[in-house]
């Protein structure tokens, strides 16, 4: 079978139309989870089948695609999905946030601010933010309908009661345009402020749970909190050891068995861009073996 045996971007046109309708509805009702008929994809659930389907429905031949997993362009998930679309849609790919027209992400929002016209597609494992405390789908839908969101604060209350502070550090619940409470997918809460007032279109796809939701450009997104325990977009209290950035989300990397460790930007494109512009971190040694 040749690559041409697939329709553009793998899914057939009817399926893409169905998904586009769901996306449009999601954009029209920001934060509302729109059900859609999720298809079997040639990858397992949990690998981003929701995001991939949303992506397939959005792509046009002129697009330039970027895929990140935990901020990195070079992990298995990111590489596989990028290759998948390069092959089935024949679109251009890039690792640079600024060059991409469509970005699929798993668990991060790029550090580089997005621009109008860009589309950010999130992979979502569990779209229902109320699921933690209310297992019945019929009941959670009713709660969304009637804006009964006290339960979300019970979750945060439990956090403070148990840990002295809101310990939820990722998938931190937000309220969209003062209406729907939404799970922002498992991004670190450090990224939550970037959800709000973002010029790009943000689309969320949950394949296994068959839900699509959206945050249109310039939408207000507020992280839930208490008056006396306000939301705080926290990160590790370090600078990036490679590029020296003090305001980006960091990964902790264990470097040896003696407790050695380093902190590096989780957004690889952002980090490399800074280094390319000559910015240095504590441990940056510019390509010592590159002389060959």
């Amino acid at each position: 079978m040749t690559d041409q045996a697939y329709n553009f971007a793998y899914l057939d046109e009817q399926t893409k139309r169905m998904i586009r309708r769901a996306i449009l509805k999601g954009i029209a009702v920001p934060g509302y989870q729109v059900p859609f008929a999720s298809r079997e994809m040639p990858m397992p659930y949990g690998w981003g089948t929701g995001g991939v389907q949303v992506m397939a429905a959005c792509l046009v031949p002129e697009d330039r695609l970027k895929v990140i997993d935990q901020g990195a362009d070079d992990t298995t998930n990111a590489v596989s999905i990028r290759k998948f679309f390069a092959r089935t849609a024949g679109v251009a790919v890039t690792e640079h946030t600024t060059e991409a027209t469509v970005i699929q992400t798993r668990h991060r929002i790029p550090e580089t601010p997005l621009k109008p016209g860009q589309i950010l597609v999130y992979q979502v494992p569990i779209p229902e933010p109320l699921r933690f405390l209310e297992p019945r789908e019929t009941e959670t839908r009713k709660m969304h309908e009637l804006e009964e969101y006290g339960l979300m604060h019970v979750k945060l209350y439990e956090d403070i009661a148990r840990h002295g502070q809101i310990a939820t550090s990722y998938a931190y619940p937000v309220k969209v345009e003062s209406r729907y409470v939404m799970d922002p997918s498992p991004i670190p809460k450090f990224d939550n402020p970037k959800l709000s007032g973002n010029p790009a279109i943000q689309l969320f796809g949950a394949g296994r749970e068959q839900r699509i939701y959206a945050v249109p450009p310039w939408t207000e997104v507020v992280s839930l909190d208490f008056d006396d325990h306000s939301f705080h977009a926290s990160k590790a209290p370090h600078d990036c050891d490679l590029c020296g950035s003090s305001h980006s989300y960091l990964d902790e990397v264990i470097t040896d068995d003696q407790g050695g460790r380093m902190f590096v930007c989780s957004d690889t494109d952002f980090c490399e861009g800074r280094r390319a512009r000559g910015m240095k971190g504590r441990l940056w040694a510019p390509e010592p073996e590159a002389a060959e």
């Binding site: 405390l133 019970v154 209350y157």
Partner: peptide, 27 residues
């Protein structure tokens, strides 16, 4: 009751449901 939620959270739920947003007062 919500069996997975602390006693305080159980009592506080109705307060939070009607808009209480001050942890100290709820507690």
């Amino acid at each position: 009751l919500r069996m997975g939620v602390s006693a305080g959270g159980n009592v506080g739920e109705r307060l939070m449901a009607v808009g209480a947003r001050h942890y100290g007062e709820i507690r």
